[in-house]
Design a binder for these strands. Structure first.
Lengths: 150, 150
DNA sequence: TATTGTTATACTCTATAACTATA
DNA sequence: TATAGTTATAGAGTATAACAATA
């Protein structure tokens, strides 16, 4: 349990991190919208999954996810196959093209971060990444965890 | 200088942190839009400043900032006074009402984070906050630094 | 001429609600 | 009845471009 002022400072940094994301997005200027890329990344990270599960992991409404998935499928970056066990469901899978897009994006974001964070040590970058992942697990995955077993 | 894979992992976490921000915003459900609150926080943090400077710190276009500021001024949370040294400029200042809104929001976000991050130590929360602030300084403030002396 | 700020327009992301198909 | 997904609509956030006032 941390001191109360710690939480206020963290909340402020969370609000301010939007500036970093905007700068990153501007410099990457991908052909694929950022929201769709976020969805693609989750599919890559978690492997095949349903749309509802993807929505939980993204912490957005299923309707939003459905649109992103439709967009990605139209572009051939994602594959929607019917779930034989539940004909209402559709299983999402990354296509080779989808993987190419992510690889390219990763290559460019890595180069950009390497430039901007040249004064950071390996440990510092790793520590920030680890803590952000833990923040997501502690804070953002509540709904995802709650329904992960259904 | 960190290993290349570190940067890719950080980029992924930056993409995913949106989920945390959405969860936070949902649970706070402020009367004031998140974008305007972000602007208000920067004014509080940096003291009186011009709209152009605020736009740099937020890493958004000045037109966007102008709209947020107009919205905040309409609600009486921000004050726009003319700069005597440059009649094109307007100096922004937090009003007592603006401070009240931020105080209330801080109170609620602190309570929410305290609940979700109950297993984090004081040092861990502090370290994440420190690294996020440094990320913002290293990555996001490039344009802001470049024009800070003009 | 250049700069500060505003406004008009368009695009992306999101949520809510109504709907279809299946369980 | 309940659930998985889709679609229509509306609201917030942002960028670009055209504009007004001042430097």
């Amino acid at each position: 349990m941390a001191e109360p002022t710690r939480y206020a400072e963290l909340a402020r940094q969370l609000s301010a991190v939007g500036a970093v994301k905007r700068e990153l997005a501007r410099n990457l200027s991908s052909s694929c919208p950022a929201g769709s890329v976020a969805a693609l990344l989750v599919v890559e990270e978690h492997g095949d999954l349903r749309i509802g599960r993807l929505a939980e992991l993204l912490a957005v409404d299923m309707s939003v996810t459905s649109r992103h998935v439709a967009h990605l499928a139209d572009r051939g970056l994602l594959e929607r196959t019917c779930d034989p066990a539940d004909k209402r469901s559709r299983i999402l899978r990354l296509t080779p093209d989808g993987r190419s897009v992510l690889d390219e994006l990763q290559r460019r974001s890595t180069a950009l971060l390497a430039e901007r964070l040249s004064e950071w040590t390996d440990d510092e970058v790793g520590e920030l990444t680890r803590l952000m992942a833990r923040l997501r697990a502690s804070f953002g995955d509540v709904r995802a965890r709650a329904t992960a077993n259904t």
